[in-house]
Design a binder for these strands. Structure first.
Lengths: 363, 363
DNA sequence: GGTATGACAGCAATCGATTGCAAGTTACTA
DNA sequence: TAGTAACTTGCAATCGATTGCTGTCATACC
């Protein structure tokens, strides 16, 4: 907040030494090279003058910035803020700064962001926007950039990633519904170009078979994105079939919320008529109407571990690539219940929506 | 993603000109200084070589970075992501980059962030963490940094800010409840060191008087922070009084959500027993149980306008300070209704909570 | 035909810090 | 006591781009 920034030269002059010496004193790594007495004096003077190192200038020379880029598909998805918080916590402690950028899922914007951040000399990236085949990310990794993927990963070699056990999570959801007595269990799948979309779908399918239920293509609806709108659309398709499901496993909470919307439109009660399970346990999932049963993943930890992995990778470019897989847990709340006896007219299309009455009608 | 970065010197050599000339060509402002033919040629060569300017180096010389810092109290509060999105949209279009940092409301962390960003040569700040008397922010403004406050502002001169009309918003909430027939209307106030906390409180109080209701100190509970936990605590206090309110105006949605919690604990129904109004209309407010009636503010616009103001201020340091006040609107949803006839025992303390049964019991 | 005018483009210092190299000290050994 | 090793610290080039100043050259004007 000082008027003119104090430079290293100023400190050097004041302390009667050469700027190079000041530089050495202020860098822990080179500090031992200088006489302890001198070092103390310089440090003292620097403190008194309120000197602070100019990271821009330093970065120019060292090609390091002690900052890392964090690429997020959509900041307004409540899943990500806790992850970011976890990342920042670790980075902060290590003296790094996180530069958060959201890409809105647009590849063009993503490339732009990435390059802008590279130009800013970031030392690495935590990327949450990965798709299974992702040229931008693959390039980044190939070009020896330090990259750690979080939540989603890519298919390929040499990847650092921290992800939930997606198959297992889906299976938990299916098992839960099956245990409640559901036999017609549907899936609202996420975009299949993401590992979360694909693996949760596969996990769902496998679990259905393991539960001894008949797999049915008609019970799979493809969500076009991980959004409420896409979830509603997919759920409408499921409800419009001849023999609609009594339980829905959504590939994430936003899709599940979309299912809520579709159910309300169709005048159906959740969980009375249809049970819904989400994935992620995003913040506020417990406050929805009804509170969402969902697969919980430890957001903060995932972020923190990703940051730690990244720091390791930055410190040691030869570090062995590794993928950390977190075990999810099921949070049972109010959106799932035993299936009721079928009571809707067996028409093929959903009957005209009875207005948008709230999913949980008041007594 | 190229191996070694192409520098201006490389381009100059290839084009057979001096680096200085390349610099002039690539800067729109100085471009007219060079012969159009040469300029075209240089530009061509630069493009072919895949040259991209190094913002670090440029920043070192120009003390500009074309990036701005965005200080957010808490990224996990869903109010902020849409604001950030608005900011990014405008900044992007102007060729600037937003560096988002969250402070968790800790002054120490805030100062740290601010200084880290200043060191990174940001050209200005959008600050959402302001408190009414805020030394850090006041210093920043005083030291001629380009600063625009968003959502909250400070008390003082020469401030650029974009805020909602907090008094008016509170008044809308009160009027709504009064119109429904409520006479015992309480307020869960936000921290009074923030303008949002203070003005919403004042607006509440004024509106109560204007409605011809008797102001009652017992109907004001102070939230310690803008969080669910604080809201629950404050609401419990309100419910424990001899003559509890039938309507609650919360200073923001998180506090309102806390009120939901307290009501559920006390076995009370919302809106059957007590109506609740929030403030901000944060994302998902319409999905809660019950859907929250709240004062809506245009998050994206607020962010965008703040960014625009900041850009103006950066371009013209002599720009006149201005505060933009946005008119809020009331979104009536499921958390408000006419007061029921009093039917609870008139005991002074809340009776033992009947477990944490969901606020909206299933039929 | 000589000089004033102006358009171009090169030169070199500069932003603030880092670091290999070398010089100067000091101390220690043979 | 000369010689060498171990410390310290200064020197200066460097990272990549910007910009005031200067020099050059062609054109225009009288």
């Amino acid at each position: 907040m000082s008027q003119r920034q104090v430079t290293m030269r100023d400190v050097a002059r004041a302390a009667g030494v050469h700027p190079g010496t000041v530089s050495r004193v202020l860098n822990p790594r080179t500090r031992p090279l200088v006489n302890p007495a001198t070092a103390d004096r310089v440090e003292q003077v620097a403190r008194e003058m309120g000197y602070s190192l100019n990271p821009i200038a330093r970065g120019l020379k060292t090609r390091r910035s002690f900052s890392v880029g964090v690429l997020i598909p959509d900041l307004t998805n409540p899943l990500f803020p806790p992850i970011i918080r976890g990342i920042e916590r670790v980075l902060d402690a290590a003296g790094y700064t996180a530069l958060v950028a959201s890409t809105d899922g647009e590849p063009a914007r993503e490339r732009l962001r990435l390059e802008a951040l590279i130009a800013r000399q970031v030392d690495g990236f935590v990327i949450a926007t990965a798709e299974r085949r992702h040229p931008v990310v693959a390039d980044a990794i190939a070009s020896e950039l330090a990259v750690v993927l979080v939540n989603r990963t890519i298919e390929g070699e040499g990847v650092f990633a921290v992800v939930p056990d997606d198959r297992r999570g889906s299976a938990m959801a299916v098992d839960h519904l099956a245990a409640l007595g559901h036999t017609r269990i549907a899936h609202i799948a996420g975009p299949q170009q993401t590992t979360t979309g694909l693996l949760r779908y596969r996990g769902f399918f496998e679990a259905i078979e393991d539960a001894g239920l008949a797999p049915d293509r008609g019970l799979i609806a493809q969500g076009e994105a991980f959004t409420i709108v896409a979830g509603a659309k997919a759920a409408r398709e499921l409800l419009a079939t001849a023999d609609p499901p009594t339980g829905i496993v959504a590939a994430n909470d936003l899709l599940a919320l979309g299912a809520y919307t579709a159910l309300a439109e169709a005048g159906l009660d959740c969980p009375g008529d249809v049970s819904v399970v989400g994935f992620n346990d995003m913040p506020f999932a417990d406050r929805f109407a009804p509170p969402l049963t969902t697969v919980h993943i430890p957001h903060g930890h995932i972020g923190a571990r990703a940051a730690e992995l990244l720091l390791e990778r930055i410190e040691d470019p030869a570090a062995t690539p590794q993928t950390l897989v977190f075990e999810p847990t099921l949070r049972v709340r109010g959106s799932t219940a035993a299936p009721a006896r079928r009571r809707r007219p067996a028409g093929s299309g959903a009957t005209a929506a009875r207005g948008s009455r709230a999913a949980a009608p008041r007594p």
